[in-house]
């Protein structure tokens, strides 16, 4: 019975990608959990209340995308996707660091005003006149 259920799941999702790798029940559960995690991080990226939430979920999504690229390498049984995953990780790290520098030093890029005006990030009360006149 268990064997038939596993075969049904494998044929339902059709996940062996034409290669010789037959997935069992634990691996399909792992793939479904990673898919659910991607959907939840994507929800926070799309409907996040503020811009910092979107940036944080983009940081988490870059790691999840690296993991998914390695899983794709395992599914296709091709080593090239591991190189793709490594380059994706390097570029996302450089992008996140550049974004953090742009937020941290707003005199260079005027990014902070954009962050606060568009998305209503709470400003600390101890510095008056920061964006006190901006809200209609």
């Amino acid at each position: 019975m268990n064997h038939n259920a596993e075969d049904g799941l494998v044929q339902l999702f059709n996940l062996n990608m034409g290669s010789g790798l037959q997935l069992n029940f634990l691996e399909i559960t792992a793939l479904l959990l990673i898919a659910l995690a991607t959907l939840m991080a994507l929800y926070r990226l799309l409907f996040g209340p503020t811009t910092p939430d979107r940036i944080v979920s983009a940081d988490a999504l870059s790691v999840i995308a690296t993991v998914i690229l390695c899983i794709i390498a395992a599914l296709f049984q091709s080593v090239l996707y591991l190189d793709v995953a490594l380059i994706y990780g390097v570029l996302s790290f450089v992008g996140i660091i550049a974004l953090a520098r742009a937020i941290e030093h707003p005199s260079d890029s005027n990014f902070e005003g954009h962050l606060e005006d568009k998305n209503n990030v709470n400003v600390r009360k101890s510095d008056p006149g920061r964006n006190s006149g901006d809200q209609p």
Binding site: T50, P52, I55, V56, D59, V63, T66, L86, G89, V90, F93, I96, I97, L99, A100, R101, I103, E104, P106, E112, L115, E116, V121, N122, V123, R124, D127, R130
Partner: peptide
């Protein structure tokens, strides 16, 4: 690479948010 860079990048993000007055 992930074990080294992911805490560094999120620490940089958190520091940037803290400096730019996210409460």
């Amino acid at each position: 690479f992930i074990l080294l860079t992911n805490p560094v990048s999120s620490s940089a993000i958190a520091r940037a948010f803290y400096v730019s007055n996210v409460r």
